[in-house]
């Protein structure tokens, strides 16, 4: 398993921040997932070994955090918030629109592997609702028309 140089530099620095090794686990898993797409058996074994943990310890942590995934997802993970503030301003309609547009449901991935869809809990964009995160990018004050443009933008980027 090889990660990028940036990953390795960050990992080497992070491990000096704490009195023990284990505290780097959660952020490291997320950075590893960013590079590998998901937390495969290979990634889990590698991180467990580095931190002197068992693979089971690592899986136990992964299953707690909603952003960590042991299954492959689309290149662009569309996360639609439907929590209270977004719901009041059309978050559920937006989710439904994305389902139709992408032809997939919650936790689904398009056959070409470009998009996956997720209904998520509050992402901290309540005053700019309804809001969506595509990977880490926020898209706010959305309407279905704006959402179409957002998705088209990623589709183009993915095809390039």
């Amino acid at each position: 398993m090889r990660f990028s140089d940036q990953f390795e530099t960050r990992f080497a620095e992070m491990i000096t921040h704490y009195p023990t090794k284990r505290p780097v686990l959660v952020p490291t898993l997320l950075y590893a997932q960013d590079e590998a797409g998901y937390l495969s058996d290979e990634v889990i074994e590698e991180i467990a070994e580095r931190l002197e943990l068992t693979a089971l310890d690592v899986r136990n942590v992964i299953s707690y955090y909603s952003m960590l995934s042991t299954k492959p997802r689309g290149k662009y993970n569309v996360q639609v918030c439907t929590n209270i503030a977004c719901m009041l301003r059309g978050g559920e309609e937006l989710l439904e629109h994305c389902e139709k547009k992408l032809g997939i449901a919650h936790k689904g991935t398009t056959p070409d592997g470009q998009f996956s869809l997720e209904e998520v809990e509050c992402i901290g964009a309540c005053s700019w609702a309804p809001a969506v995160q595509v990977n880490y990018d926020f898209h706010e004050n959305l309407t279905t028309e704006k959402m179409d443009r957002v998705l088209e933008g990623y589709a183009k980027k993915g095809a390039a």
Binding site: T20, P23, V26, P27, Y64, S66, E121, C122
Partner: peptide, 24 residues
């Protein structure tokens, strides 16, 4: 230090567990 998605980790004792690399 970065988290990975968990509301409960905002509770202070769960926050410490999370920072220590465990379930929150």
């Amino acid at each position: 230090h970065g988290g990975a998605g968990a509301y409960e980790v905002g509770e202070e004792s769960a926050l410490m567990e999370s920072l220590e690399g465990k379930r929150g």
